[in-house]
Nucleic acid binder design. Structure first.
Lengths: 230, 230
DNA sequence: AGCAATCTTAAGAAAATATTAAAAAATTTC
DNA sequence: GAAATTTTTTAATATTTTCTTAAGATTGCT
């Protein structure tokens, strides 16, 4: 079954799209704002996303940017104003295609098929379906939650894993201790400095040859930590 | 997750706002004066700021001015007296909207949504997202906190980095020693002349071929320092 | 020249991160 | 459901890096 996520705050539009695509044999998952879309993406094996721009809570543009941090599934943007088309495609927000509202059902179906074909062709087959991330000899497979360093398996605890995943997914980018805490724990960071520091050390002990001279998890003094881009 | 920073010295107001906005799916980060707000902005990925005017240490007006030196996120000012409305909006301190206390929760929520929508619309998309700055052969990537000079990586300390970022972001503009101190340290400058001078020299040593004849960080005698527009 | 502003140097003070071990929680196993 | 194990947090201390200070030198200006 080929899952397609459709996200628009207008329930009628979502339902309409569902009818068209269901006829083609696709299974539709629905979301009504950007946050729901991101949640649905994590919880389901979704092959393509159709997303509206104007939505409450988290709009389509920002949802796309966020999703592109970790996934390259095809994203088709639905837009009310055709004038912005150029901007959407021009700005590299990471969308693959766009359709303007009101849209021709046949055109939408055609674009869905075309994008799926392109994505599932051999080139892209092994890029993200196995959602793996690498940095030098470090390899993270988020599907199996396995981590290897130079081919050797590494046993990380859940928190350690999540911290490492965050940093490797966005390698190069520096995260403050607060950002790390809030991203991994999903709660406000109050006096969490040392907690994060201890976890960082534990990770280093497991993935670094010499934890005192880390190759991967570098500290940026006064700012935070990052995974070196390798 | 859409982070909103709420800043007021009255804890009850902050908590009340948190309740309203949480219901809408936003994540609230709290601060109780201007300095805390600026710190929180640096450490978190914040999309909108709601800030009171009257606060200890650093008031909302001055905090806004300071934040506008490097960010264009939407700022909504909370004000006790409606008479000052004109001044706040008229004086271009850089706020996007204002709400008078006592405020209608629904109005506040509406204004938050409206400002976020406007901000995340396409026009502004690539203003703040791209976080790199250049001046001649000097390149600063604020995301990775990396600085290169003619392609060569340069290792700066946090204060050095912040001073250089301020000057390069506003290259050509002259900043007095006091302005630099207050912007980087977030506290009143008292006898800080020499401190700043020492840091300037350290930066020059790292980015200039000949620190005695700086190409980038020029002194404007009797006024302050600037980064040459290149 | 004479004054004030800026520069320079190095060393002590301060701040941030690292480390270690042990206590507290959470999970798993029996 | 209790014991054993693993994981997470806390706390105290150590280490590293960065900041500030002070005192003298230099530079630019009138």
């Amino acid at each position: 079954m080929m899952n397609i996520l459709v996200c628009d705050d207008d329930k009628e539009i979502v339902d309409a799209i569902e009818i068209y695509l269901k006829q083609e044999g696709y299974h539709i998952i629905k979301a009504y704002d950007g946050l729901e879309a991101i949640k649905a993406l994590k919880e389901n094996d979704i092959k393509l996303l159709i997303i509206d721009i104007m939505m409450p809570r988290l709009d389509g543009i920002n949802a796309t940017l966020k999703i592109r941090e970790y996934s390259s599934i095809p994203i088709i943007i639905l837009s009310a104003k055709s004038e912005d088309t150029d901007k959407i495609l021009g700005l590299n927000i990471g969308a693959d295609d766009y359709v303007t509202k009101p849209f021709n059902p046949l055109e939408l179906v055609a674009r869905v098929k075309s994008n799926l074909r392109r994505y599932t062709s051999l080139e892209n087959l092994n890029i993200d379906n196995n959602s793996t991330f690498t940095a030098g000899g470090l390899l993270i497979n988020d599907e199996t939650k396995e981590v290897t360093i130079d081919g050797e398996a590494v046993q990380l605890t859940p928190i350690e894993y999540n911290i490492l995943l965050l940093l490797v997914r966005n390698q190069g980018k520096v995260f403050s201790i607060n950002q790390i805490y809030e991203s991994v724990w999903n709660e406000e960071a109050i006096g969490a400095d040392n907690t994060v520091a201890v976890h960082i050390r534990h990770i280093r002990e497991k993935i670094e040859i010499n934890p005192k001279e880390p190759r991967y998890l570098k500290v940026v003094w006064g700012v935070g930590y990052k995974c070196e881009k390798l």
